[in-house]
Structure formats: structure tokens, C-alpha cells
Design a protein around this nucleic acid. Structure first.
Lengths: 114, 114
DNA sequence: TTCCCATATGTGTGATTCATACATATATTG
DNA sequence: CAATATATGTATGAATCACACATATGGGAA
């Protein structure tokens, strides 16, 4: 098939956790988030910008993150996002859920431990 | 909204690997696969039967598994599936891909190791 | 003996998630 | 002045899986 096996696509529900994780450290703008995910994963995870922005709006709509426009001379305007208290709560939930899921995959599908 | 946080739903691409993993051991029929996934994962992974059967047809169409009808007196007919050589190859690919993906999640999202 | 439950397979529809193609705009570097 | 990196956005669609529903048989409980 036309699909590379260990390709760079994300798995269901991981994008939200990744974004919230990066915003947990400090406020960031969209483009920065996309670059960081790619860099820190050594290219394994590539979150296409065009997928990222709609997700940021949804996260903001759900009050998990809070954006504000930052304009500096000699720069294009950027929207910086902060994680909210509710966002931290959801992030903890997502991490827990993924840990449980991964542990189950190890048991049932015989994955090696990361 | 009406979605529980650490719910039992599968993540993208995991179903195929789970099925192939169970068929790696020996031939099994659909209902057995669904039950095994739930049992071995302690209820974490629930693969709905109605999602499972269409996937089995697709896997058979792609020659990753091979089915045959087994009829026994006092039993409803069952379709037993064997994994093919191509199926084993794809399974190895999927395991490798998930291991890579999980390792990246650990790095970027700060998951604990399973 | 009737009803429910576990077993077993199947169809049809839809929600969610993310990819891809496309569009716009600015700053830097060659 | 052209190419590239930065930066944000829209519109559409593919893929994956959930859920409601349908069918059928055997065994145990009421």
C-alpha cells in the first residue's frame, strides 16, 4: 500500500497531549509548537501546521489553553498560548490514559518497553 | 464532551497490530479475538465486535490473514483466521512503528516508561 | 417452556481525528 | 529580486473505530 509502515503520522488523541505538554513548560505560539514536536521527537512526530491551528482553536474553545496576540516590530504577529488550570488537569488525565493504554499494548501485543 | 478521559477506546492503528499479535500464537475466530483483547488487557482495551468483523475482512483482503469456516455439531459455524507470512511481516513493522512512536511520546510528552 | 444470556457473525451509519491541498503575509538571506 | 524560513489560516477529505441494529444457536435459570 502507499503507506509507509513506521510513518510520522500521529495516533488518535496524542496531538492534544503533545500540545498541552509543551505549553506546560511555558507559553508558545503555533509554529513553535510544530517545530518543537518535530525536533524533540527527532523527526518521528510531524504535526502539520494545517492540522495544528484548528486544534489550537478547539483547545482554546474548551478553555484548556488561553491565547493572546503578541506584536513586535520586525516580526509577524504571533498568537501565544498559555495552558490553563483546566488544561493541566486534562493533561494529567491524558498522560494517565496513555500510560494505561501503552501498558495494555505491551501485555497484549508484546511490545518491548520503551 | 460525553467522552470519558481514560476511556477504553483504541488508538489509531492499534487494532490491526492487536489482531495480528493474537493470530501469531495460533488460529482464532472473531469472537475469541475480541474476548482475548479484553481479558489480557484487564478490560483496558475493548474491541467492539461490530468494529472487529469488518477489519477482519479487510485484513483477509490484504492477505495478512487467511480465514476458513469451521463447522462442528452443536456449535454455530465459526470462521478461523490464520496469520500469513505477509501478516507476520506487517506485524513486525507495526510493532517497530509503535515502539518508535511510544519512545517519541516519552521524550516529548513526558510519559513515564511502561 | 419461556426468557435471558453467552456465543458468534454481520451491516449500516456516523463521530472523531488528523492529513493534505491551498491561501496569505512578513522577514531574512543570497 | 528570488528563494526560504517564519507564521497563521480555510476547506476538504481519508482513515479509523464506535455504536446501533440485525441475525442465529445453545445452555441455564425462572
Amino acid at each position: 500500500m502507499g503507506k509507509t509502515a513506521a510513518d510520522a503520522s500521529l495516533r488518535k488523541g496524542s496531538a492534544e497531549m503533545l500540545i498541552l505538554s509543551l505549553l506546560e513548560e511555558r507559553a508558545r505560539h503555533g509554529y513553535e509548537i510544530a517545530k518543537l514536536i518535530e525536533q524533540r521527537s527527532d523527526g518521528v512526530l510531524k504535526f502539520h501546521a494545517a492540522s495544528l491551528y484548528p486544534l489550537l482553536y478547539r483547545l482554546e474553545g474548551r478553555r484548556l489553553i488561553q491565547g493572546r496576540w503578541v506584536e513586535k516590530p520586525g516580526q509577524r504577529r504571533r498568537r501565544h498560548y498559555n495552558i490553563t488550570a483546566e488544561g493541566r488537569r486534562v493533561l494529567a488525565e491524558r498522560r494517565s490514559g496513555w500510560n494505561t493504554f501503552i501498558a495494555a499494548l505491551v501485555r497484549v501485543a508484546g511490545l518491548r518497553h520503551a
